[in-house]
Write a protein that binds this DNA or RNA. Structure first.
Lengths: 132, 132, 132, 132
DNA sequence: GTGGTCTAGACCACA
DNA sequence: GTGGTCTAGACCACG
């Protein structure tokens, strides 16, 4: 697992980590059951404090994306969001709206946008983790 | 002018505004000389503090994207290097990927996802001034 | 709001706080919309670090028990667990099992146990926050 | 001997075991001289490390609740001050309250809750050796 | 060795 | 003023 942090983006480091683990899981780069790097190791690699990585892992555990077991490590779980249908819908619409609004501002029309969406869906569905 | 804010993304709200105005300016959605919404109007619409909008406008002025004339409002300046097709594509793909990754973790399949995307596109095309 | 901590119980302080806020909400001592004590104030009262209280509040926010707004404070939300039916069932069975096993060990028979359960339900349903 | 563990409660697992044995001993569910399950058997049943069970038994021995004779097993000692009716009541009410509070936050109403309680009572009465 | 908790104290974002 | 993030470093629980 390679992670990349942007300390100037204004986005909290721990959330950047959360997003990248979620991305890796969705792309198949990280597979269910696979171990994540130990907190101390990852903190050292990324030159951040151990607590920052721990906070990211805790957030991922609360989202049921990974499981953490003291003494054993952290592992990727398989799907199954713990949230109710309503909450899932709300979260997803939020993300979609961000993309739709960006398309509007960037003057990308509906057809091109839908084409891009289909392309990205294909990208993630072609699961084996082979980068395009 | 359509805006979309995510209060839980970790990204400062004022930077979300800055980015959206810059996207619109660089893509030609906003044209030089065009007025931006007054601070208090926009703050009310988006339900954020006026200081937050003011900070975004101040940042945009310091980046020479807009000019603010006290008492007259804010206007888009000329000479904003337009984004290339490649840059626009990259920015948009990032937003779409975020939504696709969310759909994966929320266990939303391709058909439902595409349905939601179409629904949100309709939503913004019907009433293009309303915040989500 | 009065909270009591037991530093010798072995249970993390931040979880003791979480449980007590949840208890107060269920008992009606704390009402939806009501503000919780500011993090700094509560930390001082309880003689714990600010981060410990912050961690408790963050956990409560992730359970959708409270909402936190920078600059404004923390407020109790009304019901509506964000979790799916399955997860809610699992969490509740876990708590019930703990009580059932305790009853077994303490040699409290089924009838007495059910009587106690009904009594405690009455206690919490008589909501106005008036201690019995 | 029935046990119930909650790996997410924050309370150390070995202390959960200690408490349950002490409850059983103080209420007479376990009688002086009666053997406790062997460490490795219990560890297997509860799916915890043998060290965890061993630590619980060591703690119980240091509290003079049980005696451990290497090669012969562990036995309940005599002279455990039995809990008074009031103490037993208080301990049990604490457990029940935890479940009632959980039900409140999980939006489970009285009828469903009582149904679940009855179901779990049946569950443990039918097969009184199995961990949940 | 692993992850978890807690402290002390700094700085930032937002109202 | 509020809550949020991050660091540095100590100690504990568990395997």
């Amino acid at each position: 697992m390679i992670f990349h942090l942007d300390f100037k983006s204004g986005k909290p480091v721990y959330l950047q980590l959360v997003d990248q683990v979620r991305y890796a899981a969705a792309a198949g780069t990280l597979r269910p059951g696979e171990p994540l790097p130990p907190i101390r190791t990852l903190a050292e690699e990324l030159r951040v404090n151990r607590n920052t990585v721990a906070k990211a892992y805790a957030e991922l555990e609360s989202q049921q994306v990974i499981s953490t077991a003291p003494g054993k490590g952290c592992f990727l779980l398989d799907g199954n969001s713990p949230f109710s249908r309503e909450v899932r819908h709300r979260l997803l619409v939020n993300e979609i709206d961000a993309a739709v609004v960006a398309a509007h501002h960037l003057q990308v029309n509906r057809e091109v946008f839908l084409g891009l969406v289909a392309e990205r869906l294909d990208h993630f569905e072609r699961k084996p983790g082979t980068p395009s």
